[in-house]
Design a protein around this nucleic acid. Structure first.
Lengths: 337, 337
DNA sequence: GCGCGGGCTGTAAACGTTTCCAGAACGGCC
DNA sequence: GGCCGTTCTGGAAACGTTTACAGCCCGCGC
């Protein structure tokens, strides 16, 4: 139990009570040896006083805060939930606490996260930016502590990086739709000026070209969100009444599309087959359940966390490492033929 | 730009370059006056050196870490997403960072969160425990820094608290089902040994009693999760083939139930009308969209954060405050008559 | 011209640790 | 019993801030 005498116990309090020096207290509490009876006395005093080390003082001296951070766009997107879970697990395993920044894709917020590296609050950062500008990269490379990026980086950037080829993933989605006999395949995308928006758009074109369906782009863009997806779907249906396949740039958009299709009286998959992307928990929950291209979000989170933890320990000076994960299509009811 | 000379700039570096003492540097940087030319010199030096104050040193001296934490059961549950969003907003507004603990309802994990109060890492904690034992309360009341509980507390506990009467909410759900003519109303609950499990169960009974339908309990219990909800629904259907209304203790369970009902060939709402609870984003995404009893999760998060921030500032010594939010039923397709 | 008050300034202490260093205690060996 | 090597110990410095305190300089009023 904590003693009543002026604030929480410190090593000094313990030292006095045990009749030893603060240096000995510190050593015993950190398991660095000591004579058996010294150890006993110190431990007794510590538990009697309900001692808890002051993390701030420890960090100040040791230069380690024991915290890492993950900056993502939006905690509401289930794709990040999967990442956070695994990052959390790896971080905890390695003795780090996890700080979460939900940036809303706001540049200012991302900078706040970077700044907490500079103020020593946070020892390392995992960031998953959806827009990457030259500016961005400069900031990130100049950061005073290790940064791991989840998402594709331009060639030559010297940062640890976990990526997935979502262009290939998008092409897989189109190929799957073609494989079940669809020919008028639309694409609901997020903003084109984002990294994933670009990659998935290119993959969609790749897929059409491979199937010999090129030449006509049935594309609508919006945000990577449900409501926006529903609206985009409505616009596309109005433009292309004989649509029979639909690829959506993420599961949230797909969920919106399913709703819009239903409201327009189209049956899924009979009239229009739908494929989402990210393979989040949502895909198992909709009706019909949603075929989706998994981009290994849990795995990416895990890899990123491992890279970061490694760089904070052993791998302090190793070369930047680029790791990648391969997309995988999970077929469900929305494309049953 | 940071200077190359041995590590990041400190007030000492600045002091040397500006030709003043570290005390003056500190004062200028904190806006505590100084002669105009001193101020100018210090500010110039600080920006030239790209100075960022070391948060650990500052916390050590000032006793403030600028961090608060939120401990919840599972980041995957959308009900917490809503809370986190608002807590985040309030915290940021008041100049605090938010640390998230996903405890998995594990006692050990909750204790870890409490311990980070003791080690001064975190200045205050918002916790939403689903099980509350005497033990729990003792720990919480004994915490060395302010704690706000989201969830109902027994009488007499001296802790800030934000609550919602989910018993009344559950009764509302049943009343709504009765109102559209349902008579064989089932209930899919989470674990009975949790606070929400208890309250919702009682509310279900209240609802039946009010409608004169008491006497027969069509209840199945499981976890507060989708898959568990689907299984519970299956069991209930097997037992009660003529079920025509179903109240689920949260939206995740309801989503599972919708799936199970569909697989069993029951139409919603024609054969079985369904009501969920929490009114999460999921409710707008399912098909049919889900009628759900909202428990003001965003509002509860916001209130809790405000209580905590207040207690960390002005309200240091005020009496514990209990705030409550009223449930609200949002009717959607799953109970359209 | 002198004394006085007010603003600035610098020195130093404090926050609670960890760790370097020199010296003390101890055990074993001849 | 003396010497040596090992193990353990306590004093003190260091981490980077903030802040109490005392001294300085300045301008003002008499």
């Amino acid at each position: 139990m904590a003693s009543a005498d002026g604030g929480p116990a410190t090593i000094e309090t313990i030292a006095r009570r045990a009749g030893v020096s603060i240096a000995s207290v510190s050593r015993v509490l950190n398991g660095l040896g000591g004579r058996p009876d010294t150890v006993r006395k110190v431990q007794a005093a510590a538990t009697e006083l309900g001692y808890v080390p002051n993390a701030m003082a420890r960090s100040l001296r040791g230069g380690r805060s024991g915290q890492i951070a993950f900056a993502m766009e939006d905690i509401g997107n289930p794709v990040y939930v999967a990442m956070v879970r695994r990052i959390q697990a790896v971080a905890k395993e390695a003795g780090y606490r996890l700080l979460l920044h939900s940036t809303g894709a706001d540049r200012e917020e991302e900078l706040r996260a970077l700044r907490s590296l500079a103020d020593r609050h946070t020892e390392g950062l995992i960031i998953s930016p959806i827009r990457i500008t030259r500016d961005h990269l400069d900031e990130l490379s100049r950061a005073v502590a290790p940064v791991v990026v989840i998402g594709s980086l331009p060639e030559g950037v010297r940062l640890d990086n976990v990526r997935v080829d979502s262009r290939v993933g998008a092409a897989m989605a189109v190929a799957h739709l073609v494989g079940i006999g669809r020919r008028r395949i639309g694409f609901l995308n997020g903003p084109l000026d984002t990294v994933p928006g670009q990659a998935r758009y290119k993959g969609y074109l790749d897929g059409l070209a491979t199937a010999g369906l090129g030449g006509e782009e049935l594309v609508e863009s919006g945000q990577f969100q449900t409501d926006s997806g529903a609206e985009a779907a409505k616009r596309l249906l109005a433009r292309v009444p004989d649509l029979d396949g639909l690829f959506c740039a993420n599961d949230l958009i797909a969920v919106g599309a399913l709703r819009a299709l239903r409201e327009a009286g189209r049956r899924v998959p009979d009239d229009v087959a739908v494929v989402g992307m990210d393979d989040t928990e949502l895909a198992r929950v909709t009706w019909p359940t949603l075929t989706s291209v998994g981009l290994g979000s849990a795995r990416r989170g895990e890899l990123a966390a491992e890279l970061l933890v490694d760089r904070l320990g052993e791998g302090r000076d190793r070369e930047p490492r680029w790791v990648s994960v391969t997309p995988e299509l999970v077929a469900r009811e929305s494309t049953r033929s």
